[in-house]
Design a protein around this nucleic acid. Sequence first.
DNA 1: AGGGTGACCCGCT
DNA 2: CAGCGGGCCACCC
Length: 100
Amino acid sequence: MNIFMEKVYLVVRKIPKGKVATYKSIAVLIDSPKSSRAVALALSKNFDPKIPCHRVVRSDGFVGGYNRGGPSQKAKLLRAEGVGTRNGKVSQLLKKIYQT
DNA sequence: AGGGTGACCCGCT
DNA sequence: CAGCGGGCCACCC
């Protein structure tokens, strides 16, 4: 495992239930604002059940992708944690965003 | 070692 | 306000 991915996992793991983070914000937290794509790639390639990757969404509010059952499943999980989703996008995203 | 790919983002038209 | 294009980084063949 590379340092970069470890950082991503570390940050994602810190996201509290009921809140979400964007790929961009995670990229910023690991001091690589331009690596938002790499963040997404890391989550897609390395799938660890201990990591709530379903709490990571896109900056525009769309849930983005998911490898387990597709985006619909991801949206379902989010809703189960109190994060309202509508048409594949998160409602009230700004209030659900996890900030340090 | 080189080139293509992806669960993305921002800016311009 | 909506749509299109270019750019960025790390991973895999």
